[in-house]
Structures are given as C-alpha cells and as structure tokens.
Nucleic acid binder design. Structure first.
Length: 294
DNA sequence: CGTTGAACCTGTTTGC
DNA sequence: TGCAAACAGGTTCAAC
C-alpha cells in the first residue's frame, strides 16, 4: 500500500488515537518480518505510547522508558521506538478487542482502553522492530531528504549531474525518503519528464519543475488520504481517494489527460512505469525509419 | 557508479 | 472451466 502519503495518513490517525495509551500485552503470529520478536514480546508491555511520527515510509512509535519484565521488577528499560514499515500490504489499525481478527494479522498490541493495535500484512514484506532510541539511527540513518521538506536547490543538488535514470533516483530512498512507484510516475507526468531520462541530462528548468511536481502530487495525495489501489486503508480502516486522481499510474492504453495520446507502460528500475509518450519526451527523437509503421 | 534480476510472500487478474 | 503466468503500493542482495 504505502508510500509517503499513505504512511502520513496512517500516522496522523494513529497519533490521534494512540498517544497516551499504554500497551498492556502483546500477541504474535508469524514473526519472520520482525527483527527481534523476543524484544517485542518482552519489552513492549507496560510502556506508554508518547509520540507517533513518520520518517520516510517508516512509522515510529516512541515508547516511554519502562520496567523490564520479570517478577523481580527487572531492570529499568530506556526509551524505545517501535519501528514499523508497511511494505506492500501492511496495515496498522487500532480495533476494539472484541472485533474479529482479520486474516494475516500477525501482531496484536493490547491497549489499556480495551482496544488492540493490530498489524495485518498479507505478503509480510513489511518490517517491525522494537529498538532502544540510540539504535534508531541504524535503521533510518541512511535515508535521504524528506521530499516535502527539501528545498528546490537541495532537490536539484540531489539529482543534478547523476547519470542514473530520473525515476530510479526518485525511487531511491537514500536520495529521497518516501516516494514510491505511484507518486514517482504521477510526479514525472505532472512535470512532463520521461521516466527514463538520465538526471544529468535534465536542465535546471526541468529539475525545478520536477521538484514542484513532487511536492504538489504528495500534498494533494495527503489531502485525499492517499491512494487505495488494492488494500490500503488508514488507521480507521478506511480507504483513500487519490486513486481517482491518478493521471498515468495503471492507465496503459488509456488517453492522456492533457493530450489524449495513449499512456504507455515500460519497466524502469525494475518497476512498471506509466507515462505519456507525447507529453513526456525522452529527448531523443525517433528516426523516420523507426517511426515508419511496417 | 548504475543496472538487472532474483528473492522474500500471498492474492488477484489475465490469457490461452 | 481450469490452470499457469503475470502482476501488485517495497526492499535488499548478488552479479556484471
């Protein structure tokens, strides 16, 4: 499901619903996507959720210091973060404990108000970890700039001069944190930049246009609660609406909203990429020979 | 550096 | 109808 706008939407909902709540118990199902299941099982209970934030596509729940488990009172635990990445199909939603548990629910955090924070993930491409505050850096430290914060100059500095294809750079979390396949394509369409253009070949004007497009697309998507293509839901379990505003994503063969040319699909950086062959030029003109239909 | 393909896993859609 | 292939919002690793 989840790119920056979806994760941001989930985080806003969780913040509203979870800050101040205390985790009183943990139930685990399959754990192959969890870094250290014992840590979650043994160190989450008893802690209060103090803050919910987003870092790129990661959801961070800051947990207060707590008492280590054990009948003897245990050692004092330091502040920690529950780190969640939703992968492709992850969902993180608080539910009343009596509600039936959806299939593929692998983690349930019992809360002090009769609800449970449930993690459901069909494909289990997501990740979860409970780490001391100092260890956050190791997980999240390599990520690039937040696309909503980065300045125009910063953005141009990140992409300018690089020989990789511009879409590959948009998708690279070490460059920008949070852009994924949908919003890369939508931004490129809005900026009229072909996904296979090499960033180094883009002029300053195009780069600036792309910077602006990324911001506009992400802001619009957040405003509409993200895109629900198959199973994304927010913290209330409800879908977003930005899928109705997609201009190219999954529209191969359909007409471009600007020029009516047929949208094409091509693989870039290993991902399906949709673009308008008329609005988004590669820069390289086709020869008469290539153009001729046989 | 940059690119490609495979792997991780389950479900849905598409094509023959 | 049935079955297999292709495809899906993500990341990571090996190989070239």
């Amino acid at each position: 499901m989840p790119e920056l706008p979806e994760v941001e939407t989930v985080v806003r909902g969780l913040r509203r619903m979870l800050v101040g709540r205390r985790i009183v118990g943990v139930r685990l199902g399959k754990t192959d996507f969890i870094d250290d299941p014992e840590a979650i099982e043994g160190q989450a209970a008893g802690r209060q959720i103090q803050e919910v934030t987003r870092f790129g596509k990661f959801i961070l729940l800051r947990l207060e210091r707590g008492n280590g488990g054990g009948a003897h009172g245990g050692q004092k635990l330091q502040a920690a973060y529950l780190v969640v990445h939703l992968g492709m199909t992850g969902q993180l939603t608080p539910r009343r404990a009596e509600e039936p548990v959806a299939r593929h629910t692998h983690v349930q955090f019992e809360l002090d108000d009769g609800r449970e924070l449930r993690y459901t993930d069909i494909r289990r491409f997501g990740r979860m970890a409970l780490v001391p505050a100092e260890a956050l850096e190791k997980i999240v430290g390599g990520l690039g700039a937040d696309p909503l914060d980065v300045s125009e100059e910063g953005f141009c500095g990140l992409l300018g001069g690089r020989r990789a294809m511009v879409k590959a750079l948009l998708l690279d979390q070490r460059v920008l944190r949070g852009v994924g396949n949908i919003y890369a394509d939508e931004s490129l369409w809005r900026a009229k930049v072909h996904p296979q253009r090499h960033a180094a070949g883009l002029g300053a004007k195009k780069l600036k246009r792309l910077w602006r497009a990324v911001q506009e697309v992400l802001r619009d998507a957040i405003r509409l609660g993200g895109s629900s293509v198959s199973n994304y839901v927010n913290a209330d379990g409800e879908p977003g609406f930005f899928q109705f505003r997609h201009r190219v994503y999954q529209r191969a063969g359909k007409g471009c909203y600007r020029c009516r040319a047929k949208i094409r699909r091509v693989i870039v950086a290993g991902r399906s990429s949709y673009y308008c062959p008329r609005c988004q030029r590669t820069g390289r003109r086709k020869t008469k020979n290539e153009n001729r239909k046989t």
